[in-house]
Design a protein around this nucleic acid. Sequence first.
DNA 1: CAAATTCCCGACTAGGCCCA
DNA 2: TGGGCCTAGTCGGGAATTTG
Length: 302
Amino acid sequence: MNLSQIRVLVAVSDTGSLTAAAQRLGLSQSGVSQALAALETHLGVMLISRTQRGAEATAIGDEVLAEARDVLASLDRIKRATDLARGVEQGRLRLAAFPSVFHTLLPPLLRRFQELHPGIEVVTLEASDTEIEAWLAAGTVDLGVTAVESYSATQFPLGQDDWVAVLPSGHAIATAPIHSVSLARLSNEPFILATGGCTIHAGSLAETLGCGLQDVRMEVRDWISSFALVREGLGVTVVPEPTLPSDRRGIRVLPLKEDLHRYFALKPSFLAQNNPAVSAFLNLARSQVQMLQTSNSEKLLV
DNA sequence: CAAATTCCCGACTAGGCCCA
DNA sequence: TGGGCCTAGTCGGGAATTTG
């Protein structure tokens, strides 16, 4: 009996098939079959029941699997301890967020993380917040940035956006001598609804305020598209302030009278709670946020 | 509609290669 | 030399398709 056979046993149990286990371990299907058979021969019991529809642990297989997982967990702890002793830090962090977060909150944090942990590979994925939630639930990613209305215990505060109104420069409100406008006032205007791949957007904010958007002319995912449509005079929109374009010709930006924010939270996958790369990233985010808070920064990381 | 055929997937065996 | 892994070939069963 050896560690390779134990890894095969756990992989077959996790994936439910010898082929999938082989793909996970980087072996051939045949190699997995032989390793498993050798383990069963050595122990004298059938651990995995093979059928045409897949493979599943027998009763005694379940008992052996519990011990096998303990063995692999111990091995991981030994590896981590020895890596630490040698000053070697390796691993991978899969991080998902929606596009606007990659343009605003994350770059300084990712840059600092790579400086502190050059041995950890960071894989970033852009998605909508519903996709991110699904990936976190499935363990497809280790960490996700989600937009929330308030923070919960399992989430880690990352930052916040202020919402602003964007109007065509020739619009009656844009030419009026005012310094702010209410979302309630804009909710009756022809509206370009931009979501940025997030379920918290001008529409949901208006619903929260009890007014709702009365005349949504178009719904777009991309913030840049919404600015182009506003510039053409097709409607007004409300967007997070960091997404505003540098070229503001043809549009006017006004703060909202309502105190509206979009909060961002770092959320780890339940499968990644013991991942040292995830712990390292959360620790860095915590220290950066505290540093900025103590310097009286209005926003956390922006 | 039921039986026959074909296709595909998953698993196993035999034989051979590589390396410590 | 033996263990670990690979490729090629084979088998069995379910699903899909064809045929009468």
